[in-house]
Design a protein around this nucleic acid. Structure first.
Lengths: 211, 211, 211, 211
DNA sequence: TACTAAGCGAGACGGTACGTCATGTCTTGAT
DNA sequence: ATCAAGACATGACGTACCGTCTCGCTTAGTA
């Protein structure tokens, strides 16, 4: 969401902005990211190309904002009517049973990753990020890291309650179960099932070596 | 490496093929994947565009073959003059000390991932794979999975020697230390250092919970 | 000058149009029609290819407009500074001596046909017209027929003054001296000299048969 | 029919040559000259491209030979079974009535020009000739001029019998009725009817001026 | 209330690359 | 040794988008 220097944001057309987000997400979902074009987004949104170029620097930039907007809407909804998605957006439950809590959250994460509404744009952003480090940093800072910090909190709480060794670095530890899920999703290196994520938590918490 | 239907492969020009691989890799390294064009590859290779379109279906397809060729060359070399890269291409050492062996391999992997000669094309392929599932499957089957199977072998050997619990699934276990490295590399979620990979191995082998 | 359906002609760039005409005429004159390409015209005119494809349907179509424009300029000039080309563009003199008048006009026509500035593009258009009837009709209607009507007028005036029999159809009669010139020019069936055109007029006016 | 220097004509495949002629004429008739390609001719004739390039220099060159071959066949046939086309290929009748003879021949010429089997290739050749002077000379020398010489003979005979003034140049005179037909055919400047050609002969023979 | 300056839809523009087609040359196998 | 087959380097084709640049037209906020 890098902004161009001059334009006067206060005069900005809210209607166009929303139309652009919707068009961008719809086109990516329908045709895939590479076949989505700025001209196509403008046409679908009923908007001049310049209106896009005025506020964003690239296709990825538009999509990033569109996706953040989508995520925000999701968060707002799950705030209003707290339900199954609560863990994803709202935090990680702390029932005292660390393994159970982590399994629950990972299951919800898997559901989110496979939700078709999110999958196309998030893959697209991730792909762009691979090759465009600046976008990647933006993505990580605004979407990924906030999620990961929730795990950090939960693990610290577990350390306090003695369920996790105190010398463990939570920021690294969380990757033991989060990264495998991420990689399977990103690279199709294996199926994403509940059984799989449960196993990950078990292995990570108790280790591979005989106790 | 999806082949177009008809052309007669026996008449194929070996010289052109090699020139195309070199041009593709060089251009991706110099300008990045998105700014590498098929026209550019053809021009740099001194080859007609049609010669590319005859044998490959897309830019990604060319780059995949080029990269596989590069990997093969690497493998052939490390077979001939066994050296530092031996673990990456040739297998995982089995000194009896599982932790030490895994740490050594992961360090070598990090070196490989950060080698500028490999980084640009592999990021490019990974990015394309994110969005193009067919390519992704190809990549995983021909590059990634063979690597991962080496870990499977080593872990099985550790199970036999009692260093790893017999009920552990090695194919899943290996992701505990491989996937975090992959994700940090793919998504820039954190630095890739030896200290980090060593820690990963320690956490994974002995778990997070107090023993 | 067949127009593509939609584009908004009021926004059209006059500068580009003129540059395209000049480039087209220059390239045809320099390299000949078949070796003139749309890409070449665009490059020479400093114009995007699309700007040509937006307003014309084919190379021949461009050249037709360019040529008409050239003819118009010629006409405008000869209107302003009436000189030798007056007969070609501006009408046929009527001195009362039909034979002399026709001979003068035919001589001027020959000069025009052999003018290198006109020859290449008009041959090119004529050639294209041979094989592309639609273009041919356009050519005849917009360039040739207006010229021929001048002869019709002059011959009618001659009929009024009694120099030509009243039962003669002027539209056919004019072909007796115009078509031979055209054919010699088109097909190189013989030299185009003043002596030749004078002879044609004599033969045509007084007939071949003994009187 | 410009020949490439070296190849040994005695080894030439007659079958291929004929197949190429047929393919060339058929394709020009079906798709028009510009959309006829050498590759297409080769494919249709079941012949390698090289076999064409070995014996001819260009598409026009092939077509010229094909057309001459066609004309020869026609001539041979009309020699064997003398019929309506006799005048076109075999000469001009000399019944003593010059006007009648010329009208008959011109009518036959019109029939020939409008015969669909001949029209496409001859237009194509004429078009190519417009822009390719070398081909044009070939065409005129081998096809057109021999035809015109028949008129020269007939007009000379008429001069001997006193039907045409002795000071007339027959080579020029013939153009008075032949060229208008040629131009109408070449440039679509008017309809080609028997009435028209008859009128041409009348005008040309008796002149336009009152007697 | 009118003026003015922005954002806006529209889309022409100079470009780049696309993927296809045909050119004319060259090589290979078979007949 | 000639032919068919067709791979090759070349280069133009016509199309799709790029990102920039006018155009008139709302549409505020200021005069």
């Amino acid at each position: 969401m890098v902004k161009k220097p001059t334009p006067d944001a206060s005069r900005r057309s809210e209607k166009s902005r929303r139309a652009i987000y919707e068009a961008a997400l719809a086109l990516v979902a329908e045709n895939g990211y590479p076949r989505t074009t700025i001209e196509g987004i403008a046409a679908r949104a009923g908007v001049g190309k310049q209106t896009i170029y005025r506020w964003w620097t690239s296709k990825a930039d538009v999509l990033l904002d569109a996706f953040l907007d989508l995520a925000e809407q999701g968060a707002r909804q799950s705030g209003e009517e707290p339900g199954e998605a609560a863990e994803v957006h709202g935090g990680i439950p702390d029932t005292g049973d660390l393994a159970a809590d982590l399994k629950a959250v990972l299951r919800a994460t898997v559901d989110g990753l496979l939700d078709p509404k999110f999958e196309a744009p998030s893959r697209a952003l991730a792909a762009e990020g691979l090759v465009n480090e600046q976008l990647s940093r933006e993505l990580v800072a605004r979407l990924l890291e906030p999620q990961l910090q929730l795990y950090v909190h939960r693990l610290r709480s577990a350390q306090e309650s003695g369920a996790v060794r105190p010398d463990i670095d939570p920021r690294i530890a969380l990757e033991l179960f989060v990264s495998p899920v991420a990689q399977r999703w990103l690279q199709h290196t294996g199926p994403l099932t509940y059984a799989y994520t449960d196993t990950l938590v078990d292995y990570a918490l108790y280790g591979l070596a005989p106790r």
